[in-house]
């Protein structure tokens, strides 16, 4: 996948942006920003940027399903809050022991500048 992100300001090389209209609506879109992949989801009014790896067992989050500001991982059906990354539903009971444990999904706060979605990379 080509890196379509461009440096927004030469003086700050850590800010990478993508034109908003390159991101389709209501689709989980995987994009390379700098050297890292992110997953972007844009609805009519909101934009979320998350890690492409599920914190449970690392599945590809771009294959998940978004509903009511949550995302369901396609691998084992865990549900995460898109705003906070907190797991909301773990479909497996205590019998699955340590295997069922998960962390928070990594979420990033994008800013919109000149009709571009920008990320301030650490």
């Amino acid at each position: 996948m080509r890196d379509r992100y461009r440096k927004k300001e030469v003086s700050n090389p850590l800010i990478r942006c993508i034109p908003k209209d390159e991101v389709k609506n209501n689709v989980l879109q995987k994009e390379l920003i700098g050297n890292t992949f992110f997953v972007i989801y844009k609805s009519d009014s909101r934009i979320w940027v998350i890690s492409p790896c599920c914190p449970h067992k690392g599945a590809d989050m771009s294959k998940g399903k978004v509903e009511n500001e949550t995302i369901t991982c396609y691998m084992h059906g865990y549900v995460y809050d898109l705003n906070t990354g907190v797991p909301l539903k773990i479909p497996y009971g205590e019998a699955y022991g340590k295997w069922r444990e998960t962390g928070n999904l990594e979420v990033y706060k994008p800013t919109i500048r000149d009709n571009q979605i920008c990320l301030d990379l650490p």
């Binding site: 067992k57 690392g58 691998m75 497996y92 699955y96 022991g97 295997w99």
Partner: peptide, 11 residues
Amino acid sequence: VADVSACADPY
């Protein structure tokens, strides 16, 4: 092994 497995234990 069971803890890191990519799939749930098929009990």
